[in-house]
Design a protein around this nucleic acid. Structure first.
Length: 286
DNA sequence: AGATCGCCCTGCTTGC
DNA sequence: TGCAAGCAGGGCGATC
């Protein structure tokens, strides 16, 4: 389940292994992997061929490869199970290989998009004047972005009539936070997921944002979270941050602060993990 | 018009 | 043992 830290690890891998290389051939093995490319698989392959990859960029969970000398980018999202692998050309195809990008140089490696559940994909888009693929212009800056507008974020939280976990997952307010890191940050901040954002004081909301950053930075240091073999970084190495999770996936296990058994509650077609003692529900549940 | 919810997808796990 | 249901969940688009 790649979230911001995992995607950043992938971006760094692409910067190291793919930037500056010119595309020789593109093979789309599953149409769903390019479903966000409206003109279809053949158009995607044809337009990408011959282009040179610039420095990979990221916002939240999206990453994109600018094409040198063009106002175009290859936009990528890993979805639930996507991987971008740099593999030797002779390596056997992965079972869920969806897209293969070969290069003109003689480095002997190719870029592969592998995705079991096909929630992710690649597509080509024109850039906005500030170099962002146009279809993600609505995605807010993420908390690790130096230009993230903290004051505007706190003001938006106070103004909205919503609950704190919904706000954390709202990619138009803050991007890059998924279910795992939302639960982790809420646990660290001792906040219940249904707490109304309008009741958060500025210091409380700043504290929560600090925990979001801490959790993400900790994951980045270790190279991403992994629960199974699904998440692999750009060179095929798994991350091992999962041992450090304090909330997510810990139903019935003791809270690491107070020992109370952690709980799981269905929430928005997914789950919320929390400590019933440290994270008291708001008096008026929504 | 902003908020909410269903759906997309596959493989592993769970339960009968 | 075998089958089916449950579960994982980001983001888009339909709906209210």
């Amino acid at each position: 389940m790649p979230e911001l830290p995992e995607v950043e690890v992938v971006r760094r891998g692409l910067e190291r292994w793919v930037a500056g290389r010119t595309v020789g051939a593109v093979e789309v093995l599953h149409p769903r992997a390019v479903r966000r490319h409206p003109a279809g698989a053949a158009d995607f392959a044809a337009r990408l061929t011959g282009e040179t990859i610039g420095v990979p960029q990221r916002r939240g969970k999206y990453l994109w490869l600018p094409l040198e000398g063009r106002d175009l980018s290859v936009l990528g999202h890993l979805g639930m199970s996507g991987q971008l692998l740099v593999q030797p050309e002779e390596a056997a195809d992965e079972k869920h290989l969806r897209i293969r990008v070969r290069f003109e140089d003689a480095a002997g490696t190719e870029l592969r998009f592998v995705d079991q559940r096909t929630f992710g994909g690649l597509s080509l888009h024109e850039n906005t004047p500030d170099g962002l693929p146009d279809v993600i212009a609505h995605i807010a800056r993420d908390p690790l972005d130096p230009l993230f507008d903290e004051a505007a974020y706190h003001a938006a939280l106070r103004a909205k009539r919503t609950t704190v976990k919904r706000a954390l997952l709202d990619q138009s307010l803050i991007s890059g936070v998924g279910n795992i890191y939302a639960d982790e940050a809420l646990w660290r901040a001792r906040l219940h997921y249904e707490r109304a954002t309008a009741t958060l004081t500025r210091p409380r909301s700043a504290e929560l944002l600090g925990h979001v950053r801490d959790v993400m930075n900790a994951a980045l240091d270790v190279g991403g979270t992994s629960f199974d073999s699904l998440y692999v970084n750009v060179n095929g190495e798994s991350g091992y941050f999962d041992r450090s999770l304090d909330a997510y996936g810990r139903e019935d296990e003791p809270c690491r602060r107070c020992g109370t058994p952690m709980r799981r509650r269905p929430w928005m077609n997914r789950s919320s993990y929390f400590c019933p003692r440290c994270q008291r529900p708001p008096r008026v549940a929504s």
